[in-house]
């Protein structure tokens, strides 16, 4: 089981397609840095196929970008401590950029 990290905006369409292609059941996707923009309720990011509870947004990064209150309600808000907790849960992580 893998924790996927993505730090690019959904304008990088090919990158998001590659991430979605690589994700297996039980994996988790955390949107960090500019990746948080993919968490907007309206987005080009192809995240609709991923199950509820398997996608999160790094809270501090979303907050600093003015995105709190605009995020898709199905996403989990994860703070830096929660990010570490995810790495405890998932032995493997992959950073996409």
């Amino acid at each position: 089981m893998t924790l996927h990290l993505i730090n690019r905006t959904p304008d990088n369409r090919g990158l998001f397609d590659d991430v979605v292609e690589a994700i297996s059941e039980g994996d988790y996707l955390l949107l960090i840095e500019d990746g948080c923009y993919a968490g907007l309720a309206q987005t080009r990011a192809p995240l609709g196929s991923l199950p509820r509870g398997s996608v999160g947004v790094l809270k501090e990064d979303a907050e600093s970008r003015g995105l709190l209150g605009r995020l898709d309600e199905r996403l989990e808000l994860v703070d830096m401590d929660g990010f570490v907790t995810l790495t405890e849960r998932f032995p493997k992580s992959l950073s996409w950029f």
Partner: peptide
């Protein structure tokens, strides 16, 4: 240049 170094540091401190 990018946020990555600071993210790494904040992550390290949280770890």
């Amino acid at each position: 240049s990018t946020q990555g170094s600071l993210s790494a540091l904040r992550f390290a401190e949280a770890v």
